[in-house]
Design a protein around this nucleic acid. Structure first.
Lengths: 199, 199
DNA sequence: CTACTTATGTATCGATTGATACGGAAGTAC
DNA sequence: GTACTTCCGTATCAATCGATACATAAGTAG
């Protein structure tokens, strides 16, 4: 690793995970450097900027960490080996379960991590929006595939169905933060999938 | 009105409406006093605090204004003279239409107005959450009523259905802010209502 | 040892935050 | 007219924001 120079005295990975938890709970803008430095092991501002560049760069790194861990619940939307119906259903169920899990903050970092932001945080807002749009397009891809392989009729309203699932998916974050029960959310997935009888 | 003293030189109602637009667009915390004073007619800090008390009190007044105007789309959830199915459907359709209307900011002030907030804004977060919970309970009331009058079967999963509609409803705000088309959202309401064939 | 590299701690930067102090201006009441 | 009330404008408050300067400590390379 570090070939030369004074070795780092804090655990960079642990600090990153602590930052994830704080950003997840509070969102990007209201999370201050003071809070970050504190949860990241009480590091000094110099250490913070040397290791992470800036608050914004840290957040970008945090988003990557989130996507590669808890955020993986959305990956199944990109899976073309599962049936479309099953891919969507699993995404919704796993998202609902993950976002109500009390072992970490409630809701979704991608949806709620930068929802109220001033103009100084435009880049961060766009970063998260880009991730959401990718998920939305993956959702649309699954619906399209379902029509293509005959799991849904040819005259299916692809955009309308995509919007139904997509709107429900992003709604889970607010619902979870408002205290929705995991079991209620799971059964709500039963209902939203109910019209779709697998071929 | 003002019986005595120097008369106000700015239009209080117009200032309140301008504040609503700004809060709606940016959210509570990232909206600064400087921005508010500017859009509210370029008033001075003294005039601001004399007329509205504080940023937080202004926001509370703004929420009341919103609820009595654009926010009325949720009122139908409290209407027991409409059929339950129709009440829910109208709420969803009107919310989707209103929140994508380009004549004002996108999304919903109640859902997105204070989603990322620091601990100094706890009261504001709770205020909006309380409104959302009331709407959620009204939704549950409509489902309950549907079962009671036989529009839905006796063994209906009331909490699961409530969560499905409630999660979709709060999702509209994020969907609208992400650029969802009004027509797609309207058709997504077709789909989410589809399982429910009015008696 | 010296040279170099990297991390650390303290002290502080300019800008902005929400909120006030204070004096004066503009109206009504008598 | 004077007294009283309400509002306005300027100047400014302490606190906090994200970010840096500067000197020093702790390691490797030769």
């Amino acid at each position: 690793m570090a070939r030369t120079g004074r070795p780092r005295e804090f655990d960079r990975q642990a600090a990153l995970e602590a930052a994830l938890t704080l950003f997840w709970k509070q969102g990007y803008e209201p999370t201050s450097l003071s809070q970050l430095k504190e949860v990241m092991g009480g590091i000094s501002p110099t250490s913070f900027y040397a290791a992470f560049g800036s608050k914004e760069q840290l957040f970008e790194e945090v988003v990557e960490l989130y996507r590669s861990t808890e955020g993986r619940v959305a990956d199944v939307l990109f899976d073309e080996e599962t049936s479309p119906r099953s891919a969507i259903e699993r995404c919704l169920r796993q998202s609902a379960k993950m976002q109500t899990d009390p072992s970490h903050p409630l809701g979704c970092l991608i949806v709620s991590g930068a929802s109220n932001c001033g103009s100084t945080a435009d880049q961060v807002v766009e970063l998260l929006r880009t991730v959401r749009k990718k998920n939305h397009e993956a959702l649309r891809g699954q619906i399209r595939r379902a029509v293509a392989i005959g799991d849904l009729p040819d005259n299916t309203d692809i955009d309308g169905l995509t919007e139904m699932f997509g709107t429900f998916l992003v709604g889970i974050s607010t619902a979870a933060r408002d205290g929705a029960k995991s079991s209620d959310l799971d059964r709500s997935v039963d209902h939203i999938m109910r019209f779709w009888v697998e071929a």
